[in-house]
């Protein structure tokens, strides 16, 4: 007889791990199916300076700590990839999650699969990934010692990539399609005050040049429509992320940007004493009862480690309370 979990968490970023801390402390039998490449976006960063309680620590170090914390109260962590989910069980009421080796059965599920790097989508880019095109400056910056690189993007991630690269590269250009950065003030100032970084505004990369390694880029200024070529040895892409929801196509309702939709079910509506609706008992429910969502997979707006952790906490508490309310269902 296969063991049955109260909660199965898919993912291994700060949302997933925080959810596990709460569900296990609520004595729910919890498994975290974290993926072979676990840890999420913070594994590809260096210093994290905006996670409360830590003035500065390395992203991978923070994820190591969160993983330890998530298993401290009995959570089982498995570095396995979920390949398929059954959220519509015909016999009984258990959800099932298929990995390479086996099927996990659970009474409730928390989807916290996060988001994946968004690439430019150029064929030249795909051909040259690992040959000068990268999305991880902390991993790859040392290969660009005394070389010329260009970073594309305008958010905190792009600022971080550019700053990391200045420690190795002889020149760093930062190209952005608008005339302002959306990055936080601290990160923005770090870039603008760094004499090694040259910012190119209102411009996109139209093509990456080079046969078997990057030799340059073709840039297009969006205001003047002028194109120009610039010789570089490396291209670092940091234009954002897309929710990692492939697993949930046709299983959970997604919004028009592809994020898991938070669906408030009427039956859990909360009313005041005169019967007016004043909210919902749950804030992380999806289109399937018993499946909850947390973190970047369901959050287009904030996308921070700490908001993901907060939402993970909510999902953990929602799952516990839903299991309590529906006792006997499974």
């Amino acid at each position: 007889m296969e063991e049955i979990y109260d909660v199965a968490i898919i993912g291994s970023g700060s949302a997933a791990f925080t959810a596990a801390i709460y569900t296990t402390r609520g004595a729910a039998r919890t498994v975290i199916l974290g993926g072979a490449n676990w840890g999420g976006q913070l594994m590809l960063t260096t210093e994290v300076e905006n996670f409360p309680g830590y003035e500065s620590l390395l992203g991978p170090e923070l994820m190591g700590k969160l993983k330890n914390h998530a298993t401290k109260f009995g959570g089982e962590f498995l570095a396995v990839d979920v390949e398929d989910v059954n959220f519509n069980p015909s016999d009984g009421k258990l959800f099932s999650l298929q990995t390479g080796g086996r099927v996990y059965q659970a009474r409730s599920v928390i989807a916290a699969t996060g988001a994946l790097i968004r690439w430019l989508g150029l064929p030249s880019e795909e051909r040259l990934i690992g040959r000068g095109v990268s999305s991880c400056a902390p991993c790859d910056a040392p290969f660009f010692k005394e070389k010329n690189v260009i970073v594309v993007g305008g958010g905190d991630a792009a600022m971080e990539e550019a700053s990391v690269l200045t420690k190795y590269a002889s020149s760093v250009a930062l190209v952005h399609r608008r005339d302002t950065f959306r990055a936080s003030r601290v990160m923005r100032d770090r870039v603008l005050n760094n004499p090694k970084i040259k910012v190119i505004w209102d411009t996109v990369i139209e093509e990456i040049l080079g046969e078997d390694r990057v030799t340059g880029v073709r840039l297009k200024n969006l205001k003047s429509n002028e194109t120009s070529e610039m010789p570089v040895d490396g291209v670092f892409v940091a234009i954002g992320h897309d929710p990692s929801t492939k697993l949930f196509f046709g299983k959970l309702e997604l919004d028009d940007k592809g994020y898991i939709k938070i669906v408030k079910h009427d039956k859990w509506g909360v009313k005041n004493e005169v019967g007016e609706p004043i909210g919902n008992k749950f804030s992380t429910t999806t289109s399937v009862e018993g499946v909850f969502a947390a973190g970047d997979v369901a959050d287009y707006r904030y996308r921070q480690a700490i908001t993901a952790a907060g939402m993970g906490c909510q999902a953990g508490m929602d799952a516990l309370s839903w299991l309590e309310e529906t006792k006997g269902h499974a």
């Binding site: 990839d81 040959r131 000068g132 490396g234």
Partner: peptide, 27 residues
């Protein structure tokens, strides 16, 4: 021409037969 890690290259008889850039799991 390895400029990104992890990069995993398969060799047979002294020749490269293929490579995997980045870690995308066991598969």
């Amino acid at each position: 021409g390895v400029m990104s890690i992890p990069t995993t290259i398969l060799f047979k008889d002294g020749k490269e037969l293929g490579r995997q850039v980045g870690f995308s799991g066991k598969g």
